[in-house]
Simulated assay, not measured.
Amino acid sequence: MVEGDRTSGAASRDRSARPAADDWGASAVTTAIVDRLQPGDHVCWAFHDDEERLRTTLRFVAGGITTGEKVLCLTEDPTPEALRAVLEARGVDVTAAVARGQVRFRDARGSSPDTGVFDPVSMLDDWRRELGRARAEGYASLRAITDMAWLARPVSVTGIRRLAWYEAQANRMFADGYATVVCLYDRRLFTAGDLRGIASAHPGTAFTPGDESWRPQLRILRTDDPLGLRLVGASDLSTREALTAVLAGAAEDLPGCGAPLTVDVTGLTFADAAAVHALVRTAQTASAGLRIVGASSLMAKLIHLAGGCDTRGMTVETTADGPSPSTAREHTV
Rank of each mutant, 00 (worst) to 15 (best):
Val92Ile: 13
Glu167Thr: 15
Phe270Met: 15
Gly228Lys: 00
Arg84Pro: 10
Ala286Pro: 04
Pro19Glu: 03
Asp126Asn: 09
Leu243Gly: 01
Leu298Phe: 14
Ala300Ser: 08
Arg329Ser: 11
Ala108Asp: 03
Ile160Thr: 07
Arg18Phe: 10
Thr79Arg: 08
Ile33Trp: 10
Ala242Val: 06
Thr180Ser: 10
Ser12Gly: 08
Trp127Ala: 04
Ala192Val: 14
Phe270Trp: 05
Leu247Ser: 06
Leu74Asp: 01
Ala259Leu: 09
Arg215Ala: 15
Thr180Asp: 04
Thr57Arg: 00
Ala134His: 07
Val103Trp: 00
Asp224Ser: 13
Asp236Thr: 07
Gly210Thr: 15
Arg106Trp: 08
Val71His: 01
Pro323Ile: 07
Gly116Arg: 05
Thr30Tyr: 03
Leu184Met: 07
Leu151Thr: 09
Gly256Glu: 12
Arg109Val: 15
Ala168Asp: 03
Arg84Asn: 04
Trp150Glu: 03
Val316Phe: 01
Met173Asp: 12
Ala62Arg: 01
Cys257Asn: 10
Gly68Met: 08
Phe270Arg: 07
Ala248Tyr: 05
Thr31Asp: 09
Gly258Ile: 06
Val29Glu: 14
Ser213Glu: 15
Gly249Thr: 06
Gln169Arg: 14
Ala250Asn: 02
Thr244Arg: 14
Asp119Trp: 07
Gln169Phe: 03
Cys73Thr: 06
Ala234Gly: 09
Glu330Thr: 14
Tyr139Glu: 05
Ala21Phe: 11
Gly132Asn: 08
Asp176Pro: 11
Tyr178Cys: 11
Gln169Met: 14
His304Thr: 10
Val246His: 02
Asp114Leu: 13
Leu54Thr: 06
Leu305Ala: 06
Arg6Asp: 04
Leu151Asp: 01
Arg13Leu: 15
Arg90Lys: 11
Ala144Trp: 00
Val92Gly: 00
Leu124Thr: 05
Val98Arg: 02
Asp35Ala: 11
Leu195Ala: 12
Glu167Phe: 06
Asp22Glu: 12
Tyr178Ala: 13
Ile303Ser: 00
Gly64Arg: 01
Met299Glu: 02
Pro154Gln: 08
His202Ala: 06
Thr327Ser: 11
Ala274Gly: 06
Thr66His: 07
Arg291Ala: 06
Leu163Asp: 02
Leu290Asp: 00
Thr191Pro: 08
Asp77Lys: 07
Asp224Met: 13
Asp224His: 04
Gly249Pro: 02
Arg312Ser: 12
Gly91Gln: 14
Tyr166Leu: 13
Val103Pro: 00
Ala17Val: 12
Arg129Pro: 10
Met148Tyr: 06
Asp49Ile: 09
Val92Phe: 09
Ile292Phe: 05
Val181Arg: 00
Glu81Tyr: 13
Val265Thr: 05
Glu212Asn: 08
Arg187Gly: 10
Asp125Tyr: 05
Arg187Val: 12
Leu247Ala: 03
Gly25Leu: 13
Cys73Met: 03
Pro154Cys: 14
His331Phe: 15
Glu167Ile: 05
Ile198Met: 13
Leu247Gly: 02
Gly308Glu: 01
Ala89Thr: 07
